[in-house]
Amino acid sequence: MRTINGRRRAITLVSFVALCVAFSSAATVHAADLLAQARANGTLRVANTQSSPPWSMLDENNKPVGYDVAIAKEVGKRIGVPNVVFIADSFKNFVEGLKTGKYDLVMNDLTPTPEREQQVDFGDPYGVEDFRIFVPVGNTDIKDKDSLKGKRVGVATGSSNESWARAHLKDSDIRSYDNGGFIFNDLGSGRIDAVIISHFGGMKYANVNHLPVKEVGDPLIYQLSAPAVVKGQPALRAAVDKAIAEMMADGTMQAIAKKWVGRDYDMVGMIAKAKAQKE
């Protein structure tokens, strides 16, 4: 009996030590310096939807392009990691993807919200846009926020406009979609009555797909977009913030915005105005 008990104690001790090592390894991985790792590996992993124009989308060669894509590439160069790999994911997965190490950054029109800021850190904003109501061109019932009462409203799953819609459109039937294109397909077929999406995103879908839709009413909300990083990565966050500040100051950000967002869109000025309103 003594021998058996001794073996059991030894096995228990070994199991305990193995468990401690596993926890220690997990903590070490979580606490690893992602900036140093990216520089050592020569690769920065950035998440985006690749389906939210003009911020991120696929071109005719199936390559990621758009404002956020161009900004992310420039950030990579300026922080010493010129090889940026883009990982396609949906808004609803971005926070968990960061927390599980699936990617180093999220850069896809992601708005810092109190809920998100409890789980991940955000850098300085590099984009801003206004969100609007889109309806079929023949619709005359929906003119503004108040006329969405009782209507079926489509939003992107996990997006800040979904959060806003569920908080402010209590009397509407909010329906979420993982893909922006599907929202407009359902709008065109009559499955939903309206879509809440950014002005740029909505107009891009309408123009590219030749959809008979229109904007109605004033902007519902203005939202800043910022890079998201897992908590506990001050070096990566600081490096990204420095790159964004340099791009704002030297005209690079404005040049990228003119190419992808619109020639007359003052991205830097709009960011300043949106930050001032928020403060």
Rank of each mutant, 00 (worst) to 15 (best):
M1P: 08
N5V: 11
A10N: 04
I11L: 15
L13W: 12
L13T: 14
S15E: 08
V17W: 10
A26T: 10
T28H: 14
L34M: 13
A40T: 15
T43H: 13
N61S: 14
K63W: 03
V75F: 00
G76Y: 00
R78P: 02
I79Q: 05
G80M: 01
V81W: 02
V81A: 05
N83L: 08
K92V: 11
G97L: 06
T100D: 11
G101Q: 10
D104C: 05
D109A: 12
T111D: 06
T113W: 05
R116Y: 05
E117S: 15
Q119T: 11
Q119L: 15
G123Y: 03
D124H: 07
D130E: 14
R132P: 03
R132N: 13
I133N: 02
N139M: 10
D144W: 14
D146L: 13
L148G: 06
R152M: 03
V155Y: 02
I174W: 03
D178M: 11
N179R: 14
I183M: 15
N185C: 05
G188E: 03
I192V: 07
S198E: 02
Y205Q: 09
N207E: 15
V208W: 13
N209V: 05
V213Y: 12
K214G: 09
D218W: 09
L220Q: 13
Y222W: 12
S225I: 04
S225Q: 09
P227A: 11
G232I: 10
D241V: 06
K242A: 15
I244P: 00
G251V: 01
K259A: 01
R263F: 03
R263T: 10
V268E: 00
